[in-house]
Deep mutational scan, measured.
Amino acid sequence: LNLKQAKEEAIKELVDAGIAEKYIKLIANAKTVEGVWTLKDEILTFTV
């Protein structure tokens, strides 16, 4: 999975969960695949 694909998957998951745009922007700015997954997990843990 490359960075672009990771971001697309994570953003789709966050949108489906009804997460606010400000958190989705954090994913869009992530620099690594690991960073994308870590941010996604943290956002889902603390906002859902």
Rank of each mutant, 00 (worst) to 15 (best):
L1D: 12
L1N: 12
L1C: 12
L1S: 10
N2T: 14
N2C: 09
N2Y: 10
N2G: 10
N2Q: 12
L3G: 01
L3M: 03
L3A: 02
K4V: 11
K4E: 13
K4G: 07
K4L: 12
Q5F: 07
Q5I: 09
Q5E: 09
Q5S: 08
Q5W: 08
A6W: 04
A6V: 07
A6T: 05
A6L: 05
K7S: 02
K7D: 00
K7W: 04
K7L: 06
E8C: 11
E9F: 12
E9I: 14
E9D: 12
E9Q: 15
E9S: 12
A10N: 00
A10F: 02
A10S: 03
A10C: 07
A10T: 04
A10G: 02
A10K: 00
I11H: 03
I11C: 06
I11Q: 04
I11P: 00
I11N: 02
K12F: 04
K12C: 06
K12A: 08
K12W: 04
K12E: 04
K12I: 05
E13T: 08
E13F: 10
E13D: 08
E13P: 01
L14D: 00
L14P: 00
L14Y: 00
L14R: 00
V15E: 10
V15I: 15
V15L: 14
V15R: 15
D16H: 13
D16E: 15
D16G: 11
D16A: 15
A17R: 11
A17E: 04
A17M: 11
A17V: 05
A17Y: 09
A17T: 03
G18N: 05
G18P: 00
G18V: 02
G18R: 05
G18I: 03
G18Y: 03
I19A: 11
I19V: 15
I19E: 01
A20P: 14
A20S: 12
A20D: 14
A20K: 07
A20R: 05
A20T: 07
E21D: 10
E21Y: 09
E21T: 09
E21W: 14
E21L: 09
E21Q: 08
E21A: 09
E21P: 11
K22I: 11
K22S: 08
K22T: 08
K22A: 08
K22V: 11
K22F: 10
Y23R: 02
Y23H: 05
Y23N: 02
Y23F: 11
I24K: 03
I24Q: 06
I24N: 02
I24S: 03
I24R: 05
I24F: 09
I24D: 01
I24G: 03
K25G: 07
K25N: 09
K25L: 11
K25F: 09
K25D: 08
L26D: 04
L26H: 04
I27Q: 00
I27D: 00
I27G: 00
I27T: 00
I27N: 00
I27K: 00
I27L: 07
I27R: 00
A28Y: 15
A28R: 13
N29V: 07
N29R: 09
N29P: 02
N29L: 12
N29G: 11
N29C: 12
N29K: 11
N29E: 12
A30C: 14
A30F: 02
K31W: 06
K31R: 08
K31G: 06
T32D: 06
T32P: 00
T32G: 02
T32V: 01
T32M: 01
T32L: 02
T32R: 02
T32A: 02
V33K: 03
V33P: 06
V33D: 01
E34V: 06
E34M: 06
E34I: 08
E34Q: 08
E34N: 06
G35W: 10
G35S: 12
V36R: 00
V36D: 00
V36K: 00
V36F: 03
V36S: 01
V36H: 02
W37P: 00
W37C: 07
W37T: 12
W37L: 15
T38S: 11
T38K: 15
T38I: 15
T38R: 15
T38E: 15
L39K: 05
L39D: 01
L39F: 04
L39M: 09
L39W: 03
K40G: 01
K40V: 15
K40S: 04
K40C: 08
D41L: 09
D41G: 07
D41R: 09
D41T: 09
D41F: 10
D41M: 13
E42G: 05
E42I: 14
E42F: 14
E42W: 15
E42L: 15
E42K: 14
E42T: 08
I43F: 07
I43W: 03
I43H: 01
I43Y: 05
I43P: 00
I43D: 00
I43L: 13
L44R: 03
L44S: 03
T45V: 08
T45I: 11
T45Q: 15
T45N: 15
T45K: 15
T45A: 14
T45P: 04
T45H: 14
F46N: 15
F46T: 12
F46M: 15
F46W: 13
F46Q: 12
T47E: 11
V48G: 13
V48D: 13
V48I: 12
V48A: 14
